[in-house]
Amino acid sequence: MEKKSVKAWLYLLPAMLFLGIFLIYPLVDVFVYSFEENYNFASQSYTGTGLFNYSYVLRDPYFLQALKNTFLLVVITVPLSTGLALLISVGLSSIKPLRELYQTVFFLPYVTNTLAVGLVFMILFKRTPYSDGFVNLLLSLFHAGPVDFIDGPYGAKMLVLCLYTIWVVMPFKILILTSALASVNQTYYNAAKIDGTSGLRIFFRITLPMISPSLVYLIITGFIGAFKAYSDAVALFGTNLNAAGMNTIVGYVYDMLYGNSGGYPSYASAAAILLFAIVLTITCINLLVSRKHVHYIS
């Protein structure tokens, strides 16, 4: 028996080493960092413990800007992308010819490099002295613009960020919702049809409840994902997000590390923990709200 146990632990050893060193230890450590005041990277020393790091971060205008940006991004993109994905998935499941082709095309953004395609978005939206760019060309058809979406007003920049974020997250949502819709047994629809149920009533009374677990899953992961936005912003506005006024919370954390040869891990830790607290709270609220409205099929 003992020998058997030893063998099992040997099998687990590689995974546990990696997880222990790069996941569990850092998790503990990040809390420690966040309470160590004036941590100096070079000397690895600190002057005291307390909440100073948190109060510093919370008063840092860059952090507040990042907080605002992130919240806006979350509030705008999560409902829009989920709703749009639902519409597209319903459309997809109502057609037969070309369905696979559409599905393949819609999934493409998932397998592309966020940074690379972000560059394309930047070029589409950017206005330079030499060219107004493609989007402004479109706008001029409606006698609007031109607007510089990349270096221009805050609203315009936020708009591009939201659009790109939606573009990036749609494949996953469409995929999940299409397979949820496909797994609804066709006989439910036949039964409803024989009972003379209207299309809208079928959608709201049958389809929506049946796919509600997937929908909740998407909303929760959508919130988490949007709160962690970073690469999309970098792709559009460059690495100096603070200067562009488009930083996100995660961006703030990394900037704190990267900034000044070794950076300020204490501030970064405090900001990361704040982010984690926000995400945890929102997720709990989501779960509580959804419990009342979701029908899990036992």
Binding site: N185, N190, I194, D195, G196, T197, H295
Partner: peptide, 29 residues
């Protein structure tokens, strides 16, 4: 169309809506 024929149908897998109670299922039509 089916809804105008006034037929009742019992499906092989019953097609009961899993998120509705028995009463709600019977009321549905």
């Amino acid at each position: 169309p089916p809804e105008k024929r006034e037929v009742g149908m019992v499906f092989q897998n019953y097609a009961l809506y899993p998120h509705l109670t028995v009463m709600q299922n019977i009321l549905f039509p």
